[in-house]
Amino acid sequence: MYQFNYHKPESVGEARSLFQDADDPMYLSGGMTLIPTMKQRLAAPTDLIDLSGIPEMTGIDVSGGKVTIGAFTPHNLVADSAQVRGTLPVLAEVAGLIGDNQVRNRGTIGGSVANSDPAADYPAAVVGLGADVVTESRTISGDDFFKDLFETELKPGEIITKIEFPVPTRAAYRKFPNPASRYAVVGVLIADFDGTIRVGVTGAGPCAFRASGIEEVLNDNLDPAALDGVEVPDAGFNSDLHASAEYRAHLVKVMAKRALEDLLNG
């Protein structure tokens, strides 16, 4: 790991100004991706700005028909939260499928979402549930947040402070893990908002996206069998050692079907 300057701001404002003043800074949240990347010398920020010292960024709030997760909240806090389990169980389930237990004790929702790893789990929830990504300066719709491979709507220095999830009538998530890394080869989250269906997909493409074709079919007919005839085009899908684009497209359909079965079976 290269040398770097380390900062631990106590407020979002302080973090922003530290960012502005540094040459090539990066924010450090849980560090579950960033630290291994730095260890491999694949990332070399001049300055690391640790967000762990900003108290208001950690925590879970359930009110106003929303579940709000502070950006610095570790995955296991979400997975184990009685409030989340009671109100938005699918989010607890998604959080509980990320990485492994040790990673879930350190990794944070803000770090995961900001990184926009194509195979991360949380992005499926942000997209599938239509969450709002709140930064220090604005609110970004989940539909607009993920742009491309490791690219998001965030501007340089912008900090996710919390993510607000609307609560659907019911929802379910199915993940097909990469056998080696346990990231999602494909993950599909289906949410039913009083009859309106949203489908968030991670793993398959360069970033998480809504599967509008599947949504259309399910809005007409909320039946797993309805998905049999759906074509999931694989254009632009990821293709690697573990799964071709074609196989990923197939898995999107299968995972969607299984998520829907879970959703219908409550």
């Binding site: 790991m1 380390y6 631990k8 291994p36 296991n76 990673v103 004790n105």
Partner: peptide
């Protein structure tokens, strides 16, 4: 950060000590 050989407890919970830097 895959193998878990470096697992220790921080405040009673398991974490990977290879993925924590000194200032943290």
């Amino acid at each position: 950060s895959q193998c878990g050989a470096c697992t220790v407890h921080v405040d009673g919970r398991a974490i990977k000590a290879c993925t924590v830097i000194a200032p943290q």
